[in-house]
């Protein structure tokens, strides 16, 4: 065996493979299982990194193909995040695990937000909720959580990794204090999910201030943003809504 605790490692690899299998990512699952063989051997094969990279390519393909809508968006998300985290690992290995622990509170919050949007996603099927208005309002609520609770947390996590690649370690306090506007200036190129941030915020504000109007006949939602002090309209746009498309597909990406 490769390590004294290789049996435990094998169990963990099998658990990982099973997790992807349950998700329906069968090729990725198969690819993960193939790494068990290394644990049975005496040394790490020289093509290990190449093999791992191939696994990422398989995973990226299956991840992008999960839905018929927005495949390019999903692919780009995957590639950008992979590139940032890979750079951070190569810069900090073998201490990368410590950095993962440091950002755990952010990952935890990310998970909480994801649970809410996940529950909404599961219920967005027109067979489950027949009322169009209700589906539209739920999608709006999901947008609010995605922009406020997911995108900003993920932006903080990626910003942390980007700084690691430069040899800097951002403190958790500083990470808490920063916001997406500042992060956007520091992560170049801007990750796809942070693009058109101003528009996403306008829509979020319209939802938060109940200034959005759903028209079930045309299946569109109008979002209006009015500056409180001046009364000036800063945003007024009508976007197509389909219960099959999530807010990020409201043609603003």
């Amino acid at each position: 065996m490769l390590y004294p605790d290789s049996n435990r490692r094998i169990n963990d690899i099998n658990d990982l493979a099973n997790l992807f299998k349950v998700k329906g990512h069968l090729q990725t699952s198969k690819g993960i299982s193939s790494f068990v063989k290394i644990q049975h051997g005496k040394k790490i094969p020289s093509n290990f990194l190449k093999k791992l990279d191939q696994l990422f390519t398989i995973c990226e393909g299956e991840f992008a193909a999960t839905t018929t809508i927005g495949q390019t968006y999903r692919k780009t998300c995957f590639q950008e995040i992979k590139a940032i985290i890979f750079s951070a690992i190569s810069r900090t290995y073998p201490k990368f695990g410590q950095h993962m622990l440091a950002i755990y509170p952010f990952v935890k919050r990310l998970r909480q937000g994801r649970e809410i949007t996940g529950t909404i996603a599961d219920w967005m099927d027109p067979k489950k909720i027949k009322d169009k208005n209700l589906r539209a309002y739920l999608a709006c609520f999901a947008h609010l959580i995605i922009v406020e609770g997911l995108f900003d947390e993920l932006a903080r996590i990626l910003y942390y990794f980007v700084e690691l690649t430069k040899g800097n370690s951002v403190s958790v306090d500083d990470l808490e204090k920063t916001n997406v506007w500042k992060i956007q200036r520091k992560i170049k190129p801007t990750p796809i999910f942070l693009r058109k941030w101003r528009e996403k915020k306008y829509i979020r504000n319209a939802i938060g201030h109940a200034q959005f109007y759903f028209d079930p006949r045309t299946n569109t939602i109008r979002f209006v943003n009015i500056q409180e002090k001046t009364g000036k309209v800063t945003y007024d746009k009508t976007l197509n809504f389909s219960s099959l498309n999530w807010p990020w597909n409201w043609k603003i990406l």
Binding site: L2, Y3, D5, R8, R9, D12, I13, L16, L19, F20, T28, I32, F35, I38, Q39, I44, F48, L52, L55, F56, C59, F63, T66, T67, G70, Y73, R74, C77, F78, I81, K82, I85, I89, P94, F96, G97, M100, L110, G113, R114, T117, G118, A121, D122, M124, D125, I146, L150, F151, L154, I157, P191, I192, F193, L244, W246, W248
Partner: peptide, 30 residues
């Protein structure tokens, strides 16, 4: 229906990276 794509991608990348750790690290459970 899928969850938010960027978050999902983040989790998948982190999960697969565990293979890196389990194969190369002397103590991946530290």
């Amino acid at each position: 229906m899928e969850l938010e794509d960027s978050v999902e991608a983040f989790y998948y990348v982190i999960l697969i990276l565990r293979i890196y750790d389990l194969t190369l690290s002397k103590n991946p459970y530290k």
